[in-house]
Amino acid sequence: MTVAHVVLSVLLVAIFAPLGVAKILRQPSLISRTERLGFSVRQIQGIGALEVAGAAGLVAGLFWPPLGAAAAIGLVALLIGAAISHARAGDGIKDVVPPIWLGLVSAATAVLAIVA
């Protein structure tokens, strides 16, 4: 396991754990921003659960890298969906780029977990 793998995993956990929990708990600002993309509150909570599961998988991946790689790949898929949803909603570049960057960081984390 490399230092880069640990750093990227911790960074992603620090981002996705609180975001996922906020979605699960129906934090109003996150719900209103996501509802305008066409998702129901139940779907938003499901997305939050996937984010929390991804974060938990990344933590577990620090001890068993194949699980971390799978979690990172799952986050890549989730983030591709986020970028597509924002683009379809007509959002500007400032809303489309963050999921793309996070997807790239997640992909790098997956690669580092695989080669570790």
Rank of each mutant, 00 (worst) to 15 (best):
T2Q: 08
A83R: 12
I73Q: 08
A22W: 03
L37N: 00
I44D: 00
L58Q: 07
R33H: 13
A116M: 09
K23T: 00
R42I: 11
S29E: 06
R42S: 14
P28H: 00
G54R: 04
A116G: 15
V13W: 03
L11V: 15
A70Q: 10
L12D: 00
D95K: 15
P98K: 08
A108I: 01
E51V: 03
I73L: 15
G92V: 07
W64I: 12
I47H: 01
V21H: 12
P28R: 00
S85Y: 06
L102I: 02
I100M: 12
L79I: 10
R36T: 04
P65Q: 11
A53S: 14
G81Q: 08
G57H: 10
V21A: 14
L50K: 10
L25K: 14
L11N: 06
V115L: 03
G68W: 11
E35L: 01
A113M: 05
L78Y: 03
L78R: 05
S85I: 06
A49S: 11
A83P: 13
G92N: 12
L11C: 12
A55P: 10
P66Y: 11
V115E: 04
R88E: 10
S32I: 04
K94C: 12
Q45K: 06
S85E: 09
L67W: 11
F16L: 05
M1G: 14
A49W: 08
R26M: 04
L11M: 13
A53Y: 05
Q27W: 06
A14E: 10
L11E: 07
G54Q: 03
A49E: 04
I24P: 07
G54W: 04
G57R: 11
G54C: 03
V97K: 12
R26F: 00
R42P: 02
K94H: 15
V96D: 06
W101Q: 15
P65I: 07
A108G: 04
G74C: 09
A89C: 09
R88S: 11
I114K: 03
I47K: 03
E51A: 03
V115C: 01
G74D: 09
I44F: 00
W64S: 09
R36E: 05
L8G: 01
A17D: 02
L25S: 14
V76R: 08
G57Y: 10
G57W: 08
I80M: 15
A77D: 09
M1D: 13
H86P: 12
T2G: 11
A14N: 10
V21Y: 14
T2S: 14
V105G: 04
I15W: 09
L19A: 14
A69M: 07
G38H: 03
V13A: 10
A72T: 03
